[in-house]
Design a protein around this nucleic acid. Structure first.
Lengths: 148, 148
DNA sequence: TTGCTCCTCACGTCACGTGAGGTGGC
DNA sequence: TTGCTCCTCACGTCACGTGAGGTGGC
């Protein structure tokens, strides 16, 4: 059953997830503690946490927004809740059913994407300004070196 | 004496500095406490702190590196110490004196600038990847909207 | 069986926030 | 004189770090 069988969904342990995402087990447990990551509800207290590839992708995304945009864990929580609310709606109205509702959901997603893009672009602008200032100073120092 | 007189060096209070730099007085006092900002040594305990325009520029730079590059206050301190060590050297060998030493100092400055530029460019690359991913998702949602 | 990774408290730390209570300059 | 901003403790908080002591799967 090597070829076309459904992949058996390999589960990862917390240490592997930490390494894959560039964090620590402690951080992952903390994110679960504050409700940013869901606790796989079939787990018994004291037993090992197990994670799917989807969990890893989700954590990666959170870390990216945290580091690149400087969002607080509270921001991330609100963001994730809004996202899963949209996902819930999407599920309910997925195929067929009221095209009006489908349109409304997609438009909401667009607003959300536009918000995030705005943040990202502002940050990029600031970084570019910093970069060109540093580059200018670099040219200046090089010119002075040549003048010797 | 309006025109060519040396500007009387207007001094600012902590609240004004906080507003100009987008922080809080508490943060400025904390930076002083850990030695990231120098305490203007003529100040008597309990009296108001006063800041020059140069102090404001310095604080702005620190905040920029903190926010855009995610540096810790310890990183910033090391960075500032290295910078002022270079400034000290520069002062000693400023005009004339051993051109060999001048060259060495300038080359050190170049290394430092290259290090910072590397960090800035890496960050910008990450941000650009995030941006293009978001833009792609935006196009996808728009296409789906049109398909309705 | 022996390491290794995992587990749960629980206290420590970094970077400030937030009052409490008081003093000083337009 | 009256606000307003400033001052110094000092405790609180957010986002984890760091052991202590113990259990479980190759």
């Amino acid at each position: 059953m090597t070829p076309a069988a459904a992949a058996p969904e390999r589960l990862l342990r917390i240490g592997e997830v930490a390494e894959l995402t560039g964090t620590t087990p402690r951080t992952i447990r903390y994110y679960e503690e504050i409700g940013l990551l869901r606790e796989s509800d079939d787990r018994v207290h004291g037993k090992r946490r197990m994670y799917s590839d989807a969990d890893v992708a989700r954590l990666r995304e959170l870390i990216r927004l945290r580091d690149l945009l400087g969002l607080s864990l509270d921001d991330l929580k609100r963001l994730a809740e809004a996202e899963s609310a949209r996902a819930g709606l999407r599920e309910r109205w997925e195929h067929a059913e009221e095209p009006d509702e489908q349109r409304r959901i997609l438009e909401q997603a667009l607003v959300h994407l536009a918000d995030q893009l705005k943040l990202v672009r502002e940050r990029r602008g600031e970084l570019e300004r910093l970069e060109s200032e540093l580059a200018a100073r670099q040219r200046q120092v090089r010119a002075r070196l040549k003048a010797l």
